[in-house]
Amino acid sequence: MASQGTKRSYEQMETDGERQNATEIRASVGKMIDGIGRFYIQMCTELKLSDYEGRLIQNSLTIERMVLSAFDERRNKYLEEHPSAGKDPKKTGGPIYKRVDRKWMRELVLYDKEEIRRIWRQANNGDDATAGLTHMMIWHSNLNDTTYQRTRALVRTGMDPRMCSLMQGSTLPRRSGAAGAAVKGVGTMVMELIRMIKRGINDRNFWRGENGRKTRSAYERMCNILKGKFQTAAQRAMMDQVRESRNPGNAEIEDLIFLARSALILRGSVAHKSCLPACVYGPAVASGYDFEKEGYSLVGIDPFKLLQNSQVYSLIRPNENPAHKSQLVWMACNSAAFEDLRVLSFIRGTKVSPRGKLSTRGVQIASNENMDAMESSTLELRSRYWAIRTRSGGNTNQQRASAGQISVQPAFSVQRNLPFDKPTIMAAFTGNTEGRTSDMRAEIIRMMEGAKPEEMSFQGRGVFELSDERAANPIVPSFDMSNEGSYFFGDNAEEYDN
């Protein structure tokens, strides 16, 4: 993207840094990872977990959730003011799984939030270390993106479920800051804005008074975040219109849905970061690795190297396929839920299948599930090659597409044709070009129609051997075009429920 120079890199967003050079960025990201790792080690000690239990991804998720809940100030305040039966607002906890007599047992633990905050700050040299908290939120978000298709949420806001490739980060909490905003897809931002506008339509006082002023500035800020994701002048001009509207209503909703559809071809720039579970960072720190000293990046080879040398386990339900569970977590670790499966298959070195073909449910185990038949197995999170994460949407291309997802959002900077089903997408653009945004709409449609099938995206960008740390010898991959490109292809993934 041309304006790259004016933006802070995501590592800076990730670490609240002012302008830093590459070495400083690597050190501050490393410091953040160190903090998460030290916190995780301490929690495993508190909970008396064995090494194996500490490497269980379900335990990692519970521990991450506990610290996120302990620092969720708004919710904590709300819980104190609106006490609900049987919930102690000062405590947080969740299921911890232990191996007892050759069987997995679930144990519900409860801790004072104050105590968890103390352990977290102690692991982070006394700081609140917001960057580390956001990092864990993005890992949870990436896992949700890989596990669930947001059909219901899309339909509720009037969008087409086939636009799911635009929904990265749709389950990120509001408090995820600049680093969170960077990884949100165009569809996620559109959905947040539509929800806001709908509230304004239904509630006369939404934009009024002292609160209304705050609401208005939040609305304009979200519009600017979305505008910054678009790469064409016409899309940005249309966002200006939406932002400046005196009284946002149905016309703005129409414009936003139009823009979301246009992003299936004229893709937005959305950041991709490899955020790993805390149970990967903990053992690495415990083994003596100093992330701050060595430096770390979320968008280069580092996460690949770390996963190459990590042992992570997962509980497996009786009829689940461990290899499929591994694929789910591998995609989440690489922030690749909406990437082209052919690119992923090449990088991973084994075939990556669409969601609907995987015999696996989510990673988390519900409290009512029976533990008797639970097994555990090693997650295979290694890769054959590594590639640089991208934040450009890439230019655009036609490809055989599917009944489910009709476009992709690249996660890796790797040369390819970008699949999208042009006739299906263009069919949504018939007729409606009147109104105050008509010239911009016409211009956007013209650009979409001009998108050429034979153009290559990320020209000359390749993948790298894991021994090639400096990215000196790019390998331009070859793809098996007979395979499906979309992950949520004609899909039956479970729906995400809060």
Rank of each mutant, 00 (worst) to 15 (best):
A2C: 10
A2H: 13
A2Y: 10
T6L: 11
K7P: 11
K7E: 08
K7Q: 14
R8T: 05
E11C: 10
Q12A: 13
Q12V: 00
G17T: 05
E18S: 03
R19I: 10
R19H: 06
N21S: 02
T23N: 01
E24W: 04
I25E: 09
R26P: 07
V29E: 02
V29C: 13
M32E: 07
M32W: 10
I33M: 04
I33A: 06
D34R: 14
I36T: 03
Y40Q: 10
I41E: 15
Q42S: 04
M43I: 05
M43D: 07
E46M: 15
E46F: 03
E46Q: 06
L47R: 05
L49E: 01
D51M: 09
Y52C: 13
E53C: 03
G54R: 15
L56F: 03
L56K: 07
L56S: 15
N59S: 06
N59A: 12
T62S: 14
I63V: 13
E64H: 07
R65S: 04
R65C: 07
M66C: 07
M66W: 10
V67W: 10
V67D: 10
L68D: 10
A70C: 02
A70L: 04
E73K: 08
E73W: 14
N76G: 01
N76F: 03
K77D: 01
Y78F: 15
L79Y: 15
E80K: 01
H82Y: 06
S84T: 00
D88W: 08
D88C: 00
D88R: 00
D88L: 12
P89T: 03
K91D: 13
T92M: 13
G94I: 10
P95N: 14
K98Y: 14
K98H: 01
K98E: 14
R99L: 00
V100H: 00
D101S: 00
R102T: 01
R102Q: 15
K103D: 03
W104Q: 15
R106G: 12
R106L: 15
R106A: 13
E107Q: 13
K113N: 13
I116V: 15
R117T: 02
R118E: 10
I119S: 00
R121S: 03
D127T: 00
D127S: 15
T130M: 00
T130F: 03
A131M: 08
G132H: 11
T134W: 10
H135R: 09
M136T: 13
M137Q: 07
W139N: 08
H140S: 05
H140L: 07
H140R: 09
N142M: 11
D145C: 10
T147F: 10
Q149E: 08
R150Y: 10
R150H: 10
T151D: 07
T151C: 10
T151N: 12
T151E: 10
R152A: 11
A153D: 05
A153Q: 04
V155D: 03
V155R: 01
V155G: 03
M159D: 13
D160M: 10
D160G: 06
P161W: 08
R162L: 12
C164N: 15
S165D: 01
S165V: 10
L166F: 06
L166H: 05
M167I: 08
M167W: 15
Q168H: 08
G169S: 07
G169C: 06
T171I: 05
T171V: 03
L172N: 10
P173Q: 14
G177S: 15
A178H: 03
G180R: 08
G180F: 10
A182W: 15
A182P: 04
A182N: 13
V183G: 06
V186R: 14
V186E: 00
G187V: 13
G187Q: 13
M189Y: 12
V190A: 13
V190R: 04
M191H: 02
I194P: 03
I194R: 14
K198Y: 08
G200T: 00
G200A: 01
G200R: 08
I201K: 07
I201R: 05
N202H: 00
N202L: 01
R204Y: 12
W207V: 07
R208H: 10
R208E: 09
R213A: 04
R213H: 09
K214W: 05
S217T: 02
Y219V: 14
Y219P: 10
Y219C: 03
E220N: 11
M222N: 07
C223A: 07
N224G: 07
N224P: 10
L226C: 11
L226S: 06
G228L: 09
K229H: 11
T232P: 12
A233H: 15
A234N: 12
Q235D: 09
Q235C: 04
R236V: 01
M238I: 02
D240N: 15
D240A: 12
V242R: 06
R243G: 03
R243T: 00
E244V: 08
N247S: 06
P248Y: 07
G249D: 10
G249Y: 03
E254C: 12
F258D: 10
A263G: 04
I265P: 04
R267F: 05
V270R: 10
V270N: 10
A271P: 12
P283I: 00
P283N: 00
P283G: 00
P283M: 00
A284K: 07
A286Q: 15
A286M: 09
F291K: 08
K293E: 02
K293T: 09
E294A: 01
G295P: 10
Y296R: 12
L298V: 02
V299P: 07
V299Q: 10
G300P: 11
P303F: 13
F304T: 15
K305V: 05
K305M: 06
Q308H: 05
Q311K: 02
P318C: 15
P318L: 14
E320Y: 10
Q327E: 07
W330H: 10
M331Q: 05
A332T: 15
N334S: 14
N334E: 07
A336V: 14
E339V: 12
D340Q: 04
D340K: 04
D340V: 15
R342P: 03
L344R: 06
F346R: 15
F346W: 04
I347W: 00
R348A: 06
P354D: 07
P354G: 15
G356N: 05
S359M: 07
T360W: 10
G362N: 11
V363G: 03
S367I: 07
E369T: 05
M371T: 08
A373L: 02
M374T: 06
S377W: 15
T378Q: 06
E380L: 08
R382I: 14
R382T: 02
S383K: 07
R384F: 04
R384A: 04
A387F: 13
I388D: 07
R389H: 11
T390E: 10
R391H: 08
S392K: 07
G393E: 14
N395S: 14
T396E: 14
R400V: 02
R400W: 14
A401D: 06
A401P: 02
A401Y: 14
G404P: 04
G404H: 09
G404D: 09
Q405D: 10
I406N: 07
S407V: 14
V408I: 09
A411D: 09
A411Y: 09
A411P: 08
S413A: 02
V414W: 04
Q415H: 01
Q415S: 14
N417H: 14
L418C: 15
P419Y: 03
P419K: 03
P419I: 01
F420S: 00
D421G: 14
P423F: 02
I425W: 11
A428L: 03
F429Q: 05
F429S: 08
F429M: 03
F429Y: 15
G431S: 01
N432G: 15
T433N: 05
T433S: 02
E434Q: 00
T437H: 03
S438A: 15
D439K: 09
M440H: 04
M440T: 05
M440V: 15
A442P: 04
I444M: 15
E454Q: 01
E455F: 09
M456K: 08
M456A: 14
M456T: 13
S457E: 09
Q459N: 00
G460F: 02
G460W: 05
V463R: 07
F464S: 13
A471G: 01
A472P: 06
N473Y: 05
D480L: 00
M481L: 03
N483T: 12
N483M: 08
S486Q: 13
Y487F: 05
F488P: 11
F488T: 09
F488I: 14
F489I: 14
G490T: 13
A493P: 05
E494F: 11
Y496M: 12
